[in-house]
Design a binder for these strands. Structure first.
Length: 109
DNA sequence: CCCGTGACGACAT
DNA sequence: TATGTCGCCACGG
C-alpha cells in the first residue's frame, strides 16, 4: 500500500511544531489538493495506522474548532493541545490565529 | 464501474 | 452574522 497522498499528509502533519496547529485546508492547499481538505482529515483517521504516528491532534478545521475531538474520544484532543500550551475553550482553539501554523508559509521556499 | 461516505471549505441566502 | 447547500476528491464496498 503506497497511498502517496496519505503519506504526504502525514509528512506535513509531522512537521507541525509543538504548541502550534494547522487546518486541513492549509495542508491540502500545500499539497496542491486544496479541494480535498476532507481527504486530509480522512487520512488523519488512517494516520493511527501510520508510523511514526502523526500528531493529528494538532490539526483542526479552518475555524480552529476541534472537530476531531469527537473521533479522539472524550476531551483527549483538548488535553493534548493544552498540554502543549495551546489554550482550548468550548472546543475552540483560543488565539487560533497566533498558534496557526501554515505549511504553505512556514515551509514556503 | 457505480454509489455512498467523510477530522472541510467556500459560497449563497 | 448565522444557517443551509454544494463541491471536491480519495477510498471502501
Amino acid at each position: 500500500m503506497e497511498p502517496n497522498f496519505f503519506d504526504s499528509v502525514y509528512e506535513v502533519a509531522r512537521l507541525i511544531p509543538p504548541g502550534r496547529v494547522t487546518s486541513y485546508g492549509a495542508i491540502a492547499s500545500y499539497l496542491g489538493t486544496k479541494g480535498s481538505s476532507r481527504m486530509v482529515g480522512y487520512a488523519m483517521q488512517a494516520s493511527v495506522n501510520a508510523d511514526p504516528p502523526v500528531p493529528a491532534h494538532r490539526v483542526v478545521n479552518r475555524q480552529g474548532l476541534l472537530t476531531a475531538k469527537f473521533h479522539f474520544g472524550g476531551d483527549l484532543m483538548q488535553q493534548l493541545l493544552e498540554s502543549e500550551g495551546i489554550k482550548v475553550q468550548d472546543d475552540q482553539v483560543q488565539n487560533f490565529k497566533s498558534v496557526f501554523w501554515d505549511p504553505a508559509v512556514e515551509l514556503a521556499l
